[in-house]
Computed example of a mutant assay.
Amino acid sequence: MWILVLNSGSSSLKFAVVNPGSGEVRLSGLAERLGSEAASMRMDRGGERQTHALKGGSYAQALDLVLAELGRLGLWGQLRAVGHRVVHGGERFSAPALITPEVLEAIRTCVPLAPLHNPANIAGIKAAIRAFPDLPQVAVFDTAFHQTMPEVAYRYAVPEAWYRQHGVRRYGFHGTSHAFVAAEAAQLLARPLTELKLVTAHLGNGCSVCAVLGGRSVDSSMGLTPLEGLVMGTRSGDVDPGLHDYISRQAGLSLTEVTAALNRESGLLALSGLTNDMRELEEAAARGHAQAQLAIDIFVNRLARSIAAMAVSLGGLDGVVFTGGIGENSASVRAATLTRLRVLGFAVDQEANGRAVRGHPGIITAPDSPPALVINTNEEWMIAREAQGLLNSD
């Protein structure tokens, strides 16, 4: 049986048909720029790629194309469920949930906590219910994995009413990725996950680190929203909270405009003045572009500092895991980060680190060093497994 996994963005729809047992992908693709004249869908099937124009296309139209392809491949009758990535589940959801009207309403109540993400997730869910009315729909939450964080990790030092009445606390994100790579790391290290103290670093356009103790999240760099923590592609990460009021007064911006700038105009893009793409920044830095090099250095410094902080939350450290687009592909970022972590005993094996950039996950540190690993994340497979597990338990 197969699970259709959907990840709905503000103007995109990523999908994959995944075998939850083996991780095999029968069909995958990405619809981009939905709602615009430039909308299109890319489908990948067994090494074959097709692109379809979707001028002005919506989630529903994109799913119609997926449905037609499923029929052509004879997969329609083999689907067991649709699994949805949902970014924010607040405090209510600590595990996947079968989507009912009540669950959908609960996801809607979290929109103020993730205004860029949850509305798109809801739109994708509604379109999928219309397209696949007879299939169970399962929500898998980015925040659920982090619901095991203790109160000392998730509470802010703010008025109690803000937490009790408005849910102001740290939630953490990228939970499916952190959970997946922590389990994979345990296998590579040939040790039980329940015995390990790991820091997992999900590094892409969005970035976060997580302290995983015995397979459970006990701390995360992200907080109330995905804006807290590390420097990211276009997100600032940590800033002084007083910045909002200061720049609002100095630049004549509303608080909404300040927050939008911190989300979309900051991070690597702002520091370099060039791009939010780490590959392009590394190329520019190699040509002598000073601002590109500064952006990389700040990114690495914040990352190393945060990994060290997570070691404190764990009470020790058995290994670090790099994953995500940057974590899996940038040998130089990994090496620079581990060099800054020499205080914790890390030493890079340059040859192993270089091999890992070519798609060979594994340990990239010297024999006498604590292990640092590169592991390819697979959030689609994790979502399929979570959906399957929920249906089996029911």
Rank of each mutant, 00 (worst) to 15 (best):
W2M: 12
I3A: 12
L6F: 03
N7V: 05
S8D: 11
S22G: 12
E32V: 11
R33L: 10
A38L: 13
D44T: 13
R45Q: 14
K55H: 14
Q61A: 13
Q61R: 14
L63H: 11
D64K: 12
A68K: 15
W76A: 15
L79G: 06
A81H: 09
R85A: 01
L104Y: 09
E105I: 10
I107N: 00
P115H: 01
I125Y: 04
A128Y: 00
R130L: 14
L135F: 08
P136V: 07
V138H: 00
D142N: 09
D142Q: 03
Y154H: 09
W162A: 09
W162S: 03
R169S: 07
R170L: 01
Y171P: 00
H174R: 09
G175L: 01
T176F: 03
H178V: 12
V181Q: 03
A186W: 04
A190W: 13
A190H: 15
R191C: 08
P192S: 06
T194H: 14
K197G: 02
C207N: 03
C207A: 14
S208T: 08
S208F: 01
L213F: 11
R216M: 11
S217C: 04
V218C: 07
T225L: 01
P226F: 02
E228V: 02
Q250T: 13
G252Y: 04
V258P: 01
T259F: 08
N263T: 05
R264N: 14
S266Q: 06
A270R: 02
G273A: 01
T275I: 06
E280I: 04
A284L: 05
R287K: 15
R287D: 13
Q293W: 09
A295P: 06
I298E: 02
F299E: 00
N301W: 14
N301I: 12
L303H: 08
A304W: 08
A304Y: 04
R305M: 14
R305T: 15
S306Y: 11
S306F: 04
A308I: 06
M310S: 08
V312N: 13
S313E: 06
L317G: 04
V333M: 10
A335N: 10
A336Q: 15
L338N: 00
A352N: 10
N353P: 07
G354L: 10
R355E: 07
M382E: 15
I383M: 03
R385I: 02
A387H: 03
Q388G: 07
L390H: 08
